[in-house]
Structure formats: structure tokens, C-alpha cells
Design a protein around this nucleic acid. Sequence first.
DNA 1: TTGTAAGCGTTATCAC
DNA 2: GTGATAACGCTTACAA
Lengths: 346, 346
Amino acid sequence: MPPSRKSDGHGGPPTAQDVAVAAGVSSATVSRSFNNPDKVAPLVRARVLATAAALGWMPHAAGSALARGRTNIAGAIIPTLDNEIFAAQIGGMQSTFSARSVTLLLGCSNYDREQAFKHAQAMLAKGVEALAIAGEAHKPELFDMIAARGVPYVVTYSYRTDSPHPCIGFDNHDAFYRMTRYLLDRGHRTIGLIVQPVAGNDRIEARVAGVRNALADQGLGLRPQHVREGEWSIGFGRESLRAIMSGPLPQPTAVICGNDWLAIGALLEARTMGLMVPDDLSITGFDDVAMAAQLEPGLTTMRVDNARIGSLAADYLLARLSGETPSPVPPLVPEFIERGSTAPPR
Amino acid sequence: MPPSRKSDGHGGPPTAQDVAVAAGVSSATVSRSFNNPDKVAPLVRARVLATAAALGWMPHAAGSALARGRTNIAGAIIPTLDNEIFAAQIGGMQSTFSARSVTLLLGCSNYDREQAFKHAQAMLAKGVEALAIAGEAHKPELFDMIAARGVPYVVTYSYRTDSPHPCIGFDNHDAFYRMTRYLLDRGHRTIGLIVQPVAGNDRIEARVAGVRNALADQGLGLRPQHVREGEWSIGFGRESLRAIMSGPLPQPTAVICGNDWLAIGALLEARTMGLMVPDDLSITGFDDVAMAAQLEPGLTTMRVDNARIGSLAADYLLARLSGETPSPVPPLVPEFIERGSTAPPR
DNA sequence: TTGTAAGCGTTATCAC
DNA sequence: GTGATAACGCTTACAA
């Protein structure tokens, strides 16, 4: 039988008080032995530590949170873990926080503002001391609530120079502007676009705007029949490419995809349709998933260090928690990766 | 300026006491208005709710945890979010917990027992009321500690009928036994194996044992030069297949892979080497990732509903928390998916 | 129906 | 160097 059950008078896990009586000291000394080791006689401390270990005591966080006014809990709200970019971000954040013994509360909004708000509320009630939130397309009440509690926060994945929020991420508009410019520079004039749902997703909105603006700068535009919006999946990529390439003329000589999975679908479908990539059609993705380099031809795409976004966010928040006023984190710059799926049009 | 800052006497977020004075009631009534609405006069309650909303009050979880002895926090420990199967599990768990307003604390062990133990310790200190732990290959102290605190827990992903732990997952041994039998039944006699690192991973260990036992039942075995163990990645799959197929004769007519990414690597490398799949070589995977169906030929694999593992685990733990003694959850059965990457040997 | 008051487990401020 | 003791914010008998 484990020593901590029933061996004390009151069931449940042992308290500092239990340790105190067992060690023949006061509960204050128990607390000090752990939090202010220098202020307690070495011998006494050794005894306290030993009995604490014997009883399997660990300080109950709720009590200490109340007394200290600190919880050592941070929260992260992301749309979904199904997307590996968010999974990687959480992984990076988790490990950075964990190194400073901050535990991470996780909430997934499923791209729903209401759920995101609920999670934020629950987390603030749990006393999170810092909050990382993916994207800035949220209910204003969410940010009001955070501000009202004075909890440091960051918005991840978005980055606009004129954003009212501290951002850690990259400029989605700029990334897709660059990608579009790359294609324009190679001579493409008719370009298609396959993207994730725009509604309530400021990152995708920015990407689409980036494409449109790059085209507009050359006096060009997207034809409606060349634009497809839907769930990011290989399947939707395939279906969209077929729709675009079997629609009315003129057909695009290049298709920009909102992420690699859409692009991989497009690439595979192009192959199925007997189109030569990149000669008949250039295709670009985003994220540089492992598969992007393995296809034949390889996928031209852009890479972002997602885990780094997470750890940068954690670093920033940790700095805020230690009272510092960290300088704004400069935007990450997605790395352009040119592979075989792009070329000048025939 | 938000109403909750400085408008009260003491800085920081408003407390139930602040709401109480503002509404002209006692703090007990504030608490009741939220937790026992029937026990308070409708008019008073309305007033309390209104002022609480006006002040932006929400109960501080640490206080209520202390008073109630309940935290409404659960913890999950997984190896890594980089693997989509764990990400999916956490997603399912998160959403089920969240529907019952339990928030989820996340810890990633990076396949390191020590880290897993540390996370468990930190989580217990935070007062998690339930714990889900991936796999059962952990320090015994971890389970002792959990038992000492009387916290309900489940082991996910593993399933052995004789496990001392409540398990929610599938029988890894059985799954790979079946897969091997499938190949044997089709006439394969020399089979290769490419798997993830076995050390400290009971699931992979079980998979390897499943393959070996199915072979042994036919008086066969794995030749050392046909077995490769390393990080799961397309790259390692490629490299391993090349090593196996360019090694000494006899070469295997089928290669079993520990997951789909290894198998996809093997498939691509086989193509590069000019081997015909499935005629020259059969290849199998595990997980049924989206890409598995898209390759040419499609990958024969097995599918597990990972999100379901997460939500079943959450359901089980929630039941335990409401004092029930849920009957053991039967093992999930991975669905066998036959595609073009397997055939009888030439 | 409502208020009073006693905890919950910890830490911090005092005295000693 | 150590021990009382008073918070911390909330819930819940128990009284009124």
C-alpha cells in the first residue's frame, strides 16, 4: 500500500501539514525547505525533504496558486491539431514552456470563433498567466477579456505590421505575393488559385489578397472560374484542378495552392489528366511537408519553421511573465523552395 | 479602460466579494447564483449575474479547486505531436473533455521515460483529476505515483488482455500478426521489416513480435539483413528498402513497414530502383494516412480511428470521475485496407 | 431565501 | 532559524 493513503488521518494526498508533523516542524518550514532552501537549517531541511519524499508529498498547485497569485499555467488556442503546422507549433511551445516548468493548457477551436472564445474564458478562469492564440480573426470580446485581466498574450501565425496585437508569425500576404511574383516573373499571365476556406481565417484571407495584389500590380486578375475554395485535402486539390483545367478557355498556366496537400492533390490529378508538370502547368504549394520533396516532380513551395513559432511565442510570453518588456519579435520569413513543379509557361 | 481594472479597490481581477458588494449581497449568494441557481431568488440572481457580467467576473479556478476539491483538469501525456496519430488522439480527447468543461493539460515526452515522469508529476501537482498516458512502457514509479494519488488513468494505444492497466487502444501484436498472415497466405515466404525504434516503445515492440510470431507459426523467421529499425520517415523508408533489396540473396518478396510513411518511402524507392510493386515486391504500411490511397499503386495498410481512441479515453475517464466503474473498453480493431501494393509473389 | 463563518493547501509577514 | 498567523478566492454547512 502506498504510504500516502490512509497512513495519515484524512485520506487523500498528504498536505504540507502532514509532512510538517511527520518531520516535527511547522508547515512554514516545509514550505521554506522547498521554496527558500537557504533560509532553513541544512539538517532540518534534509529531514523535511526526506519525509516529504517518504510521504510522496508534492505541493498542491491550487493552494500555492492562491497564496502566490501565480499558477504557472499558460494556454494555447489553435484551430485544430489535425493540421500539422499547428501540431508543430504546440509541440515547440510545449517544450519551451515545460523547460521553465510552465504547463500548457490546450484548446482547439475547430475554426469556430465561439469555441475559441469559450476556451479563452475557461483558460482565464483556470488562471492562465499567458495566452497564445492562433490568428487574429476572433471575437473582439475575446481580446477585451484578455486585456481586462491583464494577461500577456500573443497572436501566432498572423503577422501584419499594423496589427494591434503582438504577433509571432509571418506575413501571409507577403509570402503569397512573393510566390505570385515568382510565377509572374517567369512569364505566367493566367493563374489559378486553390485555397482553404477563407471565412474566419485571417491567414488565408491574407494569402488570397497577396495573390490578387501581385496580379493587380501587373494589371492582371484572377478569373472566378480559376478560383476554388474548400477544405484542404488531397481530394479537394484533385477535384479543383480537374474543374479548373477542364473549364472554359483560357486555362491557367500555373496554379497556386494554399498549402502542400492541396498542391499534391493538384499535382497528382494533373498527372491523371495527362498534363505535364511543369511544362503544361506549374503548381505551387505552401508548408513544405515531407511529401513535397518526394513527388516527381518535386513541389515548389515555401517552408516555415512552425515549431519555432511555438517556441518564440513561449519565449516572448515567458519574458512578459518575468516582467520584461520584450522587444517585438520580427516576422519569420518563409523560405522559398524551388523544385520541379514550376517553370515558365510553354 | 476595462471596468475590472482599478474600479475596485485592490487591482487585479474582480473577486466574488467584489461582485457581492456591487450587487448588495453576500459572496455566498454570488457563488450560489452560479452553482446552485435554484437556491436563490430569481430577482437576486438576475442582479448578481448582471453585475458579475458588468465587472467581467469569472470564478478563480484555484479558489474553487481548493474549496471543492475538484479542479476539472485532465492531463494527457504522449510522445510527440509530430506524429499525426497522437495529434488526432489529443484532438479527440480535447473535444470530448471540453464538452464536459474539463480542460486538458498536455505533455510531450519525446519518447523519453524521464520526461514522461516529470510531466506526470507536474500534472498531479496541478491537481489533474484524470490522466491519459500513451503506451505502458514507463517508469514503474510513474504508475505508483498515480496510484498513490488515486487518480484514474488510462493507457492509450496499447492493448494487451493481460495488462495491469486500463487500456484504450488496439492490439498491436494482433494487428501485425494479421498483416503478416495476410502476406503468408498469399504465398510470401521471405519477408522484410522496416520499423520505428523499438527501444522504450511497447507498441512497436508488440508489432515486431506479431510479425515474428506469425512467421514462426509457419516455421519461418526474419533474416537480420531484412530488418531495419530507425526513425519513421519517408527518408528512412527509402534508405532501408534500398539496403534490403541490394543486400545478399535471397531478397524478400514482401516488406512490412511499421507505419505508412516508412512504407511510402519504400514504395517510392522501389520505383526508383526499377522494382515493380506489387509484382516484384509487396509493401504494407500502417495508419492509412491520406497519402496512402493516392499513390500508384495504393498502399495496403490498416486504419485505426485515432481520434476515437482519444474520445473513448476521455469518456472512460469522465465516467470514472463521476464515480462510475465503467466496464473495460474493448479493444479497437484496426481495419485492414487492401490496395494495390500487395499481391502474391511472382 | 440569505448571510455568517469555517475551511481547502499554500505562502508570506511577522514575531520570537 | 523557526513557528504562529493571516491572507489568497471560493464553496458549503449551518444559522437566521
